[in-house]
Write a protein that binds this DNA or RNA. Structure first.
Lengths: 200, 200, 200, 200
DNA sequence: ATATAACCGAGACGGTACGTCCCGTCTTCCA
DNA sequence: TGGAAGACGGGACGTACCGTCTCGGTTATAT
């Protein structure tokens, strides 16, 4: 009932919107964020620059949306009954995503946001927070089931799993494969202290 | 005994080198990486653009070196006899650094490297690896003293401490203060599993 | 009927074009070709460098066009009925032009073309050939009327009049005033041989 | 007896001087004046830039001297007893020279002088005036022998021969070969008026 | 023979202009 | 009114050449 306002004149062209996102996505995959210049997006999509800037505030917003529309069904949302197993599956999936070509684009978007505080928060909000809800649910279930500690800040807990992945994606100082993901989960759960000797 | 070669010709001007780094550092602090344009660095330092490009391949290399020369004595290197305590101090220091204005620049440099694979690896190497040696020593001491597990990949261990900090610095989804640092250390050491109930 | 094509998109800005030429002409008059740098033209005209380079291949093309637009109505095109008189008037006018400040710019453009064969031919074509038609007509009329010889290569004939002027403009080894112009015409018509003693 | 001052210290290195001129000449022939940059001259000759600038005020002075040292024995100085014949030979030689690759360099030097009035006069003086004496002698002999008119400004007379050559060299609007040279001489001597019908 | 002054190579430096690239805004005409 | 086409101002980039400068080392002459 909100958008029931009749809106005089010609409505926004949905094909144009899709063409922009498709073209941008293609350019992102081929040459990363740097290759996705507005001119090129316009040329490839057949949509004029003016139209692009009419619907997105700047080219990063376009890239962000193009990126999000590509990682739609990527992320797993497991519920095996074991928090440890759920985390293992999720962290593995995230690692795979970060290591993929699309993950590079994620890094570049995250990077770009560092210099552009205006649009950055929204960008980060949509990129990071969206995933956050899913894994938060895993955590809560684990705590409820008595598998996980209830005296830990959930944000810290989740960062213990995903921080290392982000770090490796950006700095590339160590591998970002399935073994690494599993090790992160194992150690995060059991702790680094020597006395904490127990099974995952 | 290596650099005893007389080196023909006028030697590189040390004042010029320093002026460039100082000027760049100033611009970085004032307006971030975006404000540190080559023209402005040249104007502020009194060093010509040609000279700058003679000694640094591009402006990010200048910014990187200016940045490194500013964080010289920043980082603590504790050895209290307790690995837990050492990590707490180090992680606290790192968190403080990341949260500071200079930390923002670190983020931007890390960011820039995402799109520039050529110079990126060196950049990351100098930014990340340099710190890594110090904390690795803490880890090794802890393992030797029997405080820490010896069945854990040290890279994973260290990432468990610093990954969350990097993540928060870049994404800003959660605070990056002393409390957060302490909580990260505490949880990383003791683990997230319920059965791991013990003091740090 | 040729330019009836509607031409999509925003049309080229005529004010911008004129502003560039005006600014360039001003700079040319003040400091010669050397003073007419692209940056200064851009600054003075208010037209961006990118736009300038969009419409002219380099700054000499701009200078050439600015120069041509200034010497529009300068050149006389006499038809007195006497070829001798016509040439006298034309050569006088040309000498005056060469000796003027604008003439200096002509010299510099001609000069620049010597090192730049790519754009040079067009440059010379527009600078030299354009004038050539007018004086060629004088020659042809004179031949038709029986005043001038019909066994002489017209190109040589014209060069006999104008070559000396160009030579003096560039080398400056002798004056380039009205008397010199008249003398050139007189001698070119009557020849240097002693036996050729007759009135102009 | 003027330069008998003993001059303490090491004298100027003649090999260095020659190396500079040779290197510069080579570069001039290969790529014209534009290719003869000071750095390249220094590199090719093995003489340092400082030394070059110690002995020549700027690079055009070097190019000029290198050029002059190459056109030493080029120019004919005929004395056949006939002024017409002498001029024909001289003008032919000059045309050949102007049309040659070295002639291109002459054009470029002449050109460069247009924007640099400081050093220009000397440059022109040495390039143009030096040749002028030889042909002036031909003229004077012709007048004395009664072959040529004595009521003509000699400067105008000479320019009638050489002006067209310079013009064609710079503008390239017409050929610059032996036929053209001969035609210039023929017409200059006999004049363009119809009544002046006689053999050279 | 030794001092000393001028030389010379190498090459770093400040300055100035170049031409290119991309961004985000604008203007014009068409559907 | 939406949109395609594309021109425009702004501003940074990295390169090239000029002419000056500072090193350390060399060489001819004057004492």
């Amino acid at each position: 009932m909100a958008s029931q306002v009749p809106k005089a004149g010609r409505p926004r062209s949905e094909p144009a919107r899709r063409a922009v996102l498709t073209a941008c996505g293609e350019l992102l995959q081929q040459g990363g964020l740097r290759a996705a210049t507005t001119d090129r997006i316009a040329a490839l999509s057949g949509v004029s620059k003016a139209t692009i800037y009419k619907w997105w505030p700047n080219k990063y917003a376009v890239a962000l949306e193009a990126f999000l529309s590509q990682m739609n069904a990527e992320s797993p949302d497991p519920d095996t009954g074991s928090a440890a197993e759920d985390f293992r599956l999720t962290v593995r999936g995230t690692a795979r995503f970060y290591a993929s070509p699309i993950g590079r684009i994620f890094a570049q978007l995250l990077a770009e946001a560092q210099s552009d505080p205006t649009e950055a928060s929204d960008l980060i909000g949509r990129l990071v927070t969206s995933r956050r809800g899913v894994v938060r649910a895993i955590w809560d279930r684990g705590v409820l089931r008595g598998e996980l500690r209830d005296d830990v800040d959930p944000d810290v807990a989740l960062d213990l799993f995903f921080g290392p992945l982000v770090y490796r994606m950006l700095a590339g100082h160590a591998p970002l494969d399935e073994r690494a993901a599993d090790e992160v989960v194992r150690v995060a759960l059991t702790g680094l202290n020597r006395t904490n000797r127990n099974k995952t």
